[in-house]
Write a protein that binds this DNA or RNA. Structure first.
Length: 790
DNA sequence: CTCTCCCT
């Protein structure tokens, strides 16, 4: 009878909320074990039965919420709906390859709903970007004719609208990843859609690795991975040969034209701006339509803008408007791209326009074929940002930006065989980035060693070592790479590990208030706007908070000023004040949100900020706990050999690990370079730049860097006046001497050698001296020298 | 005298 009840109950688990079924199954296993030992289980069975009942009622309540599903008729994914439905029933994993316009992003969640998903648990749908997550959710809600935040919700950092009745939840992949911390089984989802997997961000790769391990533990969970590029076999292989479905896109053909900057002998003197002007002329002759040009950075954009403004506008171009577009641009200037306009537009853009922003109404694309790519060099231990030729996939993505409206034309300012020689795909982020944050998470979630984790692309051993080295520097792991208590705390802070370390130091040293402000400020994009044509005015406005010994204190001053204003100003007035002071209101708000979030984490633990402000030194020492790898000493040699007549000569620094660097011109310290420098970031572009800097006192280093210092002891010698054996020690941090020739008691370092020297130089020396004395006063010997203590 | 882009 009991055995029957047990199996009857477990057969009902498949009708429970996914959130409950795992816990209930565990409970039933426990009862089964008790029963086999002959122990009574009736009470337990009753409880489980009640919980199953409640859970099933919850499922039925969710089922009642199901909206009538309508599809946008002719989208390619919708036309093959039956196949998707069949695949979802048959398989646990489906790889869906669908290019732009296939409808995969908006229609797939609805198809999943039609397949009966979303009832026992949520349909989770991830997007790489916050704006996309929100707008995708809004779009699906609209198509299902339900208000956003109810049956269809979204969640991104700082904001979201989700309720108990939510069936489809759209979120950033970062949110889903973070949820693993509190719910390792991701048990509230019955379906997951990882969209835009081809982008291969760190979050996506981590998720795909994690999900591979999770799927066997969650047999009722369905996973759909979508990619806009054709390399879906990798994803399929990763999930043990999962089925692939390919759905065509809805784009117009794009004609490719190759116009290399130096194509033939006539072009020998042609530079990039000239090649661009020629391309613009060529496209202008084709007819009306806006042109989108891709550059590697702001500098190229500015050069091109200048050249275009001087360029005699061909008549058929009509009124031409030139608009730069890059992420750092103020919100108002970015918004201009979306405003209606007459005439022709030429938009000069960085990679933002490749994936993040879709510029409307583009007929033509001009592609320089270049991009700045961030790569962490494990060998040098430094982040690089170099201009590189983009991959074929990225070039196709750029070209595709003119095929949404009608047939387009893309001019590539490089040769066709150059394109053919390029790598097919951009290296996934996991191969290009510092892995400290990933490894910290893996350690804290006890996911085992990185080498054994099923990443699509395994990170290089040197990258892994560099990450552990950094974690050791931050004291997050010990010499044996075991997570420390501090490391466990660090892993819970949703910021870069270096910055998280500073906050923890702030907690310990009574400057949490200051650290929360500075760290959240360093994490968000710099709220200080500096429009190219009004740089001086912007600098003047920002000078109010400028501190020439510390960019960190500038941030703090800006924050304090802003908080004071925010206390008595309306939101509208605050917004106006930001504009007047060349501050981005949106980024100031993000800064405050992040500050709020971090602060909340400490308040939950009952830790509160210091109320009295602390000294600047205390602030900088806390900062230094995270920046021991970014310390540098001014290069005095260079200063002397380059006399002051050339004022432009950049002051050079000798950093740890033998790095040479200079202060970034954006730093307030560039005109008053201190002897000792601490930088929040080192970035190699044209040279290594230290960004966000402060002058420091080298005496702070030793107590904070004890675990990293190497000691060199030299010139042990007997000291006649103290009677001791002394020596000099030089302490180095990653090869940079930070304590020079300090006198030390040699006996504490090498007692044996000290004793040898004591006998050799002290006793025998004294005896020699004694002999002399004895010789001189043979008849009246002096008192014997008393031996010095070793 | 200057630095692509995202995310918890």
């Amino acid at each position: 009878m009991t055995a029957l009840d047990l199996s009857a109950l477990s057969s009902q688990l498949d009708n429970c909320l996914t959130r409950d079924s795992h816990a209930l199954r565990t409970r039933l296993h426990g009862l089964k074990r008790r029963a086999s030992k002959g122990l009574p289980i009736d009470k337990g069975l009753l409880e489980v039965a009640a919980q199953i009942e409640a859970s099933q009622q919850a499922v039925e309540a969710r089922r009642a919420l199901l909206p009538t599903i309508r599809y946008a008729d002719d989208l390619p994914v919708v036309l093959r709906r039956e196949e998707v439905l069949a695949a979802l029933t048959k398989n646990q994993v489906l790889i869906l390859c669908g290019e732009t316009g296939s409808g995969k992003t908006t229609q797939l969640p609805k198809i999943a709903l039609e397949a009966g998903r979303g009832v026992r648990g949520l349909i989770g749908h991830t997007q790489p970007r916050r704006i996309a997550a929100r707008s995708v959710a809004a779009r699906i809600a609209e198509e299902l004719d339900t208000p956003l935040g109810e049956k269809v919700g979204y969640q991104v950092r700082f904001t979201g609208q989700v309720s108990d009745s939510t069936l489809i939840k759209v979120m950033t992949d970062g949110i889903l990843l973070a949820e693993i911390h509190s719910d390792p089984l991701l048990s509230k989802y019955d379906t997951l859609i990882i969209d835009e997997a081809h982008e291969r961000s760190l979050n996506i790769d981590f998720l795909l690795g994690y999900l591979k391990r999770l799927l066997p533990k969650r047999p009722e969970l369905k996973l759909i991975v979508t990619s806009a590029t054709l390399d879906v076999e990798r994803f399929s292989a990763h999930f043990d040969g999962a089925d692939i479905m390919s759905v065509e896109g809805r784009t117009y053909p794009v004609e490719m034209r190759y116009r290399p900057v130096q194509g033939d002998d006539d072009d020998r003197d042609r530079d990039l701006p000239r090649a661009l002007l020629d391309a613009v002329d060529e496209l202008a002759a084709e007819g009306a339509g806006d042109i989108l040009v891709f550059f590697d950075g702001e500098r190229g954009i500015r050069e091109a803008e200048e050249a275009l403004r001087k360029h005699p506008v061909p008549r058929h171009l009509g009124a031409t408007e030139i608009l730069p577009l890059y992420a750092r641009l103020s919100a108002a200037d970015q918004a201009r791209v979306f405003q209606k306009h007459g005439g022709r537009r030429i938009i000069l853009a960085t990679n933002v326009a490749e994936t993040s922003l879709t510029v409307p109404g583009i007929r033509y694309v001009i592609d320089t074929g270049l991009a700045r790519v961030s790569r962490f060099s494990a060998h040098a231990g430094i982040q690089r940002l170099q201009v590189e030729p983009i991959s074929q996939a990225a070039a196709r993505q750029r070209a595709g930006r003119c095929g949404r409206l009608g047939p387009g034309i893309c001019i590539r300012l490089y040769a066709e065989d150059d394109f053919a020689k390029r790598p097919a795909h951009t290296d996934p982020e996991i191969l290009r980035t510092n892995l400290a944050a990933v490894i910290l998470r893996m350690e804290s979630w006890q996911l085992g060693h990185v080498d054994d984790f099923p990443f699509l692309d395994k990170p290089d051993g040197r990258q892994i070592k560099a990450a552990y080295d950094l974690l050791f520097e931050l004291q997050a792991v010990d010499e044996t790479r075991r997570l420390s208590a501090l490391g466990a705390q660090l892993s819970r802070l949703p910021v870069d590990p270096r910055l998280g370390r500073m906050v923890l130091a702030g907690e310990r040293d009574g400057c949490l208030a200051e650290m929360l402000v500075i760290v959240s400020g360093l994490t968000v994009q710099d709220p200080r706007d500096r429009p190219p044509e009004r740089q001086q005015a912007a600098d003047q406005a920002h000078a109010a908070w400028k501190n020439t010994t510390s960019d960190f204190l500038s941030l703090l001053a800006l924050w304090r000023w802003y908080e004071e204003q925010a206390r008595h100003l309306s939101q509208a007035k605050l917004r106006g004040l930001c504009e007047k002071n060349f501050l981005s209101y949106v980024r100031m708000r993000e800064w405050r949100s992040l500050h709020q979030e971090l602060r909340g984490l400490f308040h939950e633990e009952g830790v509160h900020e210091n109320e009295a402000p602390v000294s600047e030194d205390v602030v900088h020492r806390a900062l230094m706990t995270g920046l021991l790898g970014h310390l540098a000493l001014r290069d005095e040699e260079k200063r002397k050999t380059n006399p002051a007549k050339d004022k432009r000569e950049m002051v050079s620094y000798q950093g740890v690990k033998g790095r040479k660097l200079a202060i970034h011109p954006g730093s307030a310290l560039v005109k008053t370079p201190p002897k000792w420098l601490m930088s929040a970031q080192w970035l190699e572009t044209t040279r290594v730049w230290g960004a966000m800097n402060a002058a420091i006192n080298p005496r702070w280093i030793e107590p904070l860097a004890k675990h990293l210092l190497s000691r060199e002891v030299s010139e042990p010698h007997y000291q006649l006046d103290s009677g001791r054996v002394a020596a000099f020690e030089t302490l180095s941090l990653y090869g940079l001497p930070v304590v020079l020739r300090r006198a030390v008691n040699y006996a504490a370092i090498d007692p044996l050698d000290a004793r040898r020297i004591f006998i050799l130089e002290g006793v025998l020396g004294a005896l020699e001296g004694w002999e002399v004395v004895a010789d001189q006063a043979w008849s009246t010997p002096s008192p014997q020298p008393s031996p010095a203590r070793g």
